[in-house]
Amino acid sequence: MAGTLCEICNNTATQRCSACSQSRYCTRDCQKSGWPKHKLLCGSAKAIRLEDRPTPASPNTFFRRAILFEPAESKPRFVWLKFNLQEVDGRYEEVPDLTEHQIADDKEDIDHRRIHNNPVLGKQLHHTIRVRYRDNFLADGSKPNKAANPLKPKIDWRGPMVCYAMKGLSATLKESDDLDLSDFPFIVQWFKVFGDSRPLQTSLLTDADWERMPPAERADGVAVKI
């Protein structure tokens, strides 16, 4: 399970970050290696603690910890993202409200990508991370996303972006989940490779990719080419 292994390698974690008490490492060297990216969210993780989850006003509303990339800010941060239980294609699922953080409104198309594993680290996620952003961010006047710059992305991202989690790795994801600091290395790697013109083996699946995959491969989170 997430949290028992070192965030930098696959060895058993024996220590935690003394500041946030959330990220785990096997050695001091691994902690130093991860610090340049970990420091981006360390303080935010202390401010947005799971035990301080907001109380929903309705039994059909849920709050999950997500990571927001706000264009005007210098780094990403944890936020509480609201989900509403809605009927989608004949089934009920928890759908994020993307209007609060200006990711979307009724007139905008929203795109997303799924992250299941990290081919570089050789690690598999226990849930699915979704990255949501405006589909037409290069043409709608969105400002450059400064919060994404520390991750050294391949794309000139513009407009707000948010990453959140859904439980499981299947094609039909119904329940939302919390992101934590152990998820961040997967997101960092996604930013580094998404948009690369070389044929990479990754798990950055589009909806079309997902539908073409055999069910057994979906469940295993097998990587496909993009």
Rank of each mutant, 00 (worst) to 15 (best):
C6G: 02
T12Q: 14
A13K: 00
T14L: 15
C26A: 04
T27N: 01
T27P: 05
D29Y: 06
S33Y: 10
S33W: 04
S33I: 10
W35Q: 04
W35C: 00
K39T: 02
L40K: 01
L41Y: 00
S58W: 04
S58Y: 05
P59H: 05
N60Q: 10
F62G: 08
R65H: 11
E70G: 11
P71M: 04
K75V: 03
K75Y: 05
P76Q: 07
F78L: 08
L81T: 03
L81Q: 11
L81S: 02
Q86A: 09
D89E: 15
E100P: 09
Q102Y: 13
K107T: 13
I110P: 02
I110L: 03
R114W: 13
P119F: 14
G122Q: 10
R132G: 10
R132M: 12
N136V: 08
F137D: 03
K146S: 12
K146D: 07
L151D: 01
K154G: 03
D156P: 02
A165F: 02
G168A: 09
G168L: 09
S170C: 08
L173N: 10
L179V: 03
D180N: 13
D180V: 12
L181K: 01
F186A: 07
I187H: 05
F194C: 02
D196L: 00
S197M: 11
R198K: 14
T202D: 15
L204S: 13
D209S: 05
P215R: 03
A216H: 07
R218F: 04
D220W: 14
G221D: 05
V222D: 14
V224A: 13
V224G: 04
V224E: 15
I226Q: 07
